[in-house]
Amino acid sequence: MLQKLLGLPINASAHGGEIDSLIGWVHLLMVVLFIGWILLFFWMLVRFRKGRQPRADHEGVKSHASSYVEAVIVVLEIILLVGISIPFWAKKVNAFPTAAEDPLRIRVIAQQFAWNIHYPGPDGKFGKTEINKIASDNPIGLIRKGDGADDVVEVNQLYIPVNRPIILDTTTMDVIHSVFLPLFRVKQDTIPGMIIPIYFTATQTTEEIRQQMKETLPLDSKRNFELYAPAADVKNDSGAVIVKKGVRINASAKKRLIDAGITTLEVVPANPTEIACAQLCGLNHFRMKGYVNVLTADEFKKWYAEEVENQSE
């Protein structure tokens, strides 16, 4: 409700509700204040126009009502501040998931213009990195010996299990970037020379979110169709499949659809859970994009085992 009203994206994280409710309460306060003032404002413009009020009253307002209104605003601001915002921040910064909650710790190393994701191997330890080792096949300069031998490194793909706390150790190799996961209400600047840990828990898998975001689009809409896939196989008149379910609608697919006389299409996002970069970081800032893949616990286990297998030396 609130999200719809305010236009916030779907919330798929455990803590996101608190952020949304603060945004909601502040906007309620703002809207009430604005409407109150604007009504008074217009009323005064009409009531005290020269035609109606040829001579001004030297003194003007005599009541002290405005002081009370101001006091009420201050009180409400304090409530939002002390009641919601400060405690939330304390939790965000200090109340990291405990070992009992079995958090998954992952490193996020930003660079111009990619997100490098570093998982410890089954030994649970991150391998050492060395900047001189950085190469196109080793984006973070991981030393594939000792602790690092079994580590997993991904570029622009963050795989996480649903409903398990995730701790991201965020940093950057070059300039400042900002890890922005809009659907998880996560945003954190990555600062060179600093490692800043943040945590969140995804409450829905990517597939669940994808289904929620199913919509029917006219093919001539302004959307970037490369980001979408058909919700079901699309067939032409003769029954042949022209675009497969779940496959991104690239330019040629779009052309096939149009040629087949299709005008509207039920689509789902190819990947609804994105990693955006929210801090200007140079030329390709606008397309420094990664993906979060929220998997079920079993899927995650399977994916992880495969990657360890593929990557370890």
Binding site: W37, L40, F41, M44, L45, F48, R49, K50, Q53, P54, R55, A56, D57, E59, G60, V61, S66
Partner: peptide, 9 residues
């Protein structure tokens, strides 16, 4: 805003 009150605008 309240300066408008009572004015001859």
């Amino acid at each position: 805003i309240l300066s408008l009150w009572g004015g001859s605008i």
